[in-house]
């Protein structure tokens, strides 16, 4: 807690990681600032040191290697929404990024890395990435480390934001026969999500081959549901199956959130509705053309 915090703008990753290692606690990484500035403005957070990673080239850009898309942590939401490689290969992510609140102003500055590291239950990026089984790459004093986002979500010792840096997000290109849907339930245009669901479905002709659903905004962390849906594979989609999916997803929520957007009982029920709607959106064969750049 300091009235006169320090600021550093490391040139590259090496310098950044050395700097972070040299600082005892109290350092805060800043990217777009869209998450931390409100806390700083209200004095809720008074860091001793800001480490601005905005100047680090290695954290920027979107690349494709074989079938893997690598997204630099500093990529802003607006670019997630419009970069060709993301729109074509990861339309679910592009679409989810479009559902982020705060307007273009926030989309132009908020980074995907900052969004993930915030681990805010109501946010949109994590459900989409979890549905795509994404990996992340971290840099800490232990060096570079790759792990799944799911693993990261359950690991409280990652030190992201103060001692380690999220460098990139790695996602396999979605296969052409993969259908996807994303449904965000929010009370009004300016509200945060009350239930966010991402669905990724593989079809075999008319038959459902696999389903993976991720529910966000309903519990403290996003909930990945796939195994529990195994019983509904192999046939065509029907409304009954939709209802059954709804039920499975409701049952998957143990401790629903309760906030001003709505109480826990409703939230839990909405997990099911959002899941069914995301599924239906996927099955209605939504294509990349519906993405607004």
């Amino acid at each position: 807690m300091s009235l006169h915090p320090m600021y550093a703008r490391p040139r590259d990753l090496e310098q950044a990681s050395q700097l972070l290692a040299s600082l005892s606690s109290g350092a805060v990484i800043i990217a777009g600032g869209q998450e931390i500035m409100p806390f700083i403005n209200y004095g809720v957070m008074m860091p001793d040191v800001y480490v601005d990673i905005g100047g680090i080239k290695a954290l920027k850009g979107v690349n494709v290697n074989d079938d893997e898309v690598s997204i630099g942590a500093l990529t802003v939401h607006r670019d997630i929404q419009s970069t060709e490689d993301i729109v074509e290969r990861l339309p679910l992510l592009a679409y989810a990024a479009q559902q982020i609140g705060g307007g273009w102003q926030v989309h132009n500055r908020g980074t995907i890395g900052g969004n993930i590291v915030s681990m805010h239950p109501l946010y949109d990026i994590a459900p989409a990435l979890l549905a795509l089984d994404a990996d992340v790459e971290l840099l800490s004093d232990k060096g570079l480390q790759r792990m799944s986002l799911l693993q990261l979500q359950n690991d409280s010792s990652h030190g992201l934001g103060s001692s380690s840096i999220l460098t990139k997000i790695l996602v396999k290109t979605m296969l052409p026969n993969v259908l996807w849907g994303y449904y965000k339930l929010k009370n009004s245009a300016g509200a945060y999500g009350s239930a966010n669901a991402a669905a990724v479905i593989q079809m075999d002709g008319e038959k459902i081959k696999s389903i993976r659903i991720v529910i966000g905004a309903v519990s403290e962390t996003s909930v990945v549901i796939s195994k529990a849906l195994d019983g509904y594979l192999g046939g065509a989609y029907t409304l009954e199956i939709g209802r059954a999916i709804e039920k499975v997803c409701i049952d998957a929520i143990d401790e629903p959130l309760s906030d001003q957007q709505g109480d826990g009982v409703w939230r839990k029920a909405m997990a099911g509705i959002a899941a069914r709607r995301a599924t239906e959106m996927a099955l209605s064969n939504l294509t990349t053309s519906s993405i607004k750049r």
């Binding site: 409100p38 009370n187 009004s188 245009a189 300016g190 509200a191 945060y192 906030d259 001003q260």
Partner: peptide, 28 residues
């Protein structure tokens, strides 16, 4: 529809920003 200033049972303010005090936007 949504604007609501809430307090907890102890009278502590819960609605502290426009995140919770949701006013309508153009699209609504």
């Amino acid at each position: 529809l949504s604007e609501d200033i809430q307090y907890d049972a102890n009278g502590v303010q819960l609605t502290k920003s426009f995140k919770d005090y949701v006013m309508l936007r153009m699209a609504d």
